[in-house]
Simulated assay, not measured.
Amino acid sequence: MITKFNYQRHPYHLVSPSPWPLNTSISLFTLTLTGVLTMHGFSKAGYILIIAFLNLIFSMSLWFKDIASEGTFLGNHTYAVQRGINLGVGLFIVSEALFFLAIFWAYFHSSLSPNIELGTMWPPMGISAINPFELPLLNTIILLSSGVTITYAHHSLIQGNRRGALYGIIFTILLALIFTVFQIVEYNVSSFTISDGVYGSTFYFGTGFHGLVHVMIGTAFLGVGLFRLLSYHFTDHHHLGLESGILYWHFVDVVWLILYVAFYYWGY
């Protein structure tokens, strides 16, 4: 009697059907739509906004759980799969860089040649820019310090120093939270708002998108990595999830340096 076995003859992971990508997409669409409606004062839109946000957290949490199981317990993240994921993360970061290119383009388009409506000066007439050598400089030091601590955590993990890796990630998350709090304080004490012409629009769009999307999501990214490290999911040669978060965090640092020089120092 001859039995036929279906062996997998390639190192790639064929992903099983999952409801989480679709559910996450629907949640993001609902979150965006209800967010706009809430800002325009539509009745009851805020309730749907909260539901969409909770559903997004629920979907992403279970999606992360499935991916962690595939990479840690099922052994699906082979070397070839890791290379593909690294390429995907790299392309995602490139897309984020191009997004910020558009923001910087809008900023320099108005600032390099301010028209008569701006008073032919930059910052525009009536705008009191934030002093770059006060809270923004402190925030820059904090964010760059977080880049040092996360690099220390990465090298500690590679060298098998679990304690150093844990301390490095914990300090990085704490510095990220401090940065976020200081950014909120800066917005509260600022003398201009997002509705104050092109200066306010580009300033808050650039720094706000960096703070809301990159710092907060990057902090959550590293928080997941910390949880997985505490759960012994990572080894010195197999820690793709944490490595992706670290790469993303370094991108956050680089973008902030450009933001600081262009928006705060040069535009002061």
Rank of each mutant, 00 (worst) to 15 (best):
M1H: 12
M1P: 09
K4T: 15
F5S: 12
N6L: 13
Q8D: 11
H10D: 15
H13A: 11
H13Q: 06
L14P: 00
S16G: 02
S16T: 14
P21T: 15
P21E: 11
P21S: 10
L22T: 14
T24D: 04
T32S: 11
T32W: 09
L33F: 14
T38P: 01
M39I: 12
F42M: 13
K44C: 03
A45V: 00
Y47H: 14
L49D: 04
L49A: 11
F53M: 12
S59Q: 03
M60I: 15
W63I: 06
K65Y: 06
I67Y: 08
A68C: 02
T78G: 14
A80D: 09
I85G: 05
N86T: 09
G88E: 06
G90T: 05
V94F: 14
V94H: 03
E96N: 02
E96G: 09
A97K: 01
F99L: 15
F99Y: 14
F108P: 03
F108G: 01
H109Q: 11
S110D: 11
P114F: 08
N115L: 08
E117I: 14
T120D: 07
M121P: 00
P124Q: 07
A129P: 09
I130G: 05
E134V: 10
E134Q: 12
L135M: 14
P136Y: 10
L137T: 03
S145F: 11
S146V: 05
Y152V: 13
A153H: 09
H155A: 08
S156P: 02
A165R: 05
A165Y: 07
L166D: 10
Y167P: 00
F171G: 00
T172M: 04
I173D: 01
L175H: 03
I178F: 13
I178T: 14
I184S: 10
Y187S: 10
V189P: 01
S190N: 09
S190H: 04
S191Q: 13
T193C: 04
T193N: 11
S195P: 01
S195N: 10
V198W: 01
G200C: 07
S201G: 03
S201T: 13
T202W: 04
F203Y: 15
F205W: 01
G206T: 12
G208Y: 03
G211K: 05
L212N: 06
V213Q: 02
V213Y: 11
V213A: 15
I217M: 13
T219E: 03
T219G: 13
L222K: 07
G225Q: 03
G225I: 07
S231M: 10
S231W: 05
Y232S: 13
F234N: 07
H237G: 00
H237Y: 07
H239I: 00
L240C: 05
L242H: 05
I246A: 09
L247C: 07
Y248G: 05
D253H: 04
W256K: 03
W256R: 02
W256H: 04
I258K: 04
L259Q: 09
Y260C: 07
V261N: 01
Y265T: 09
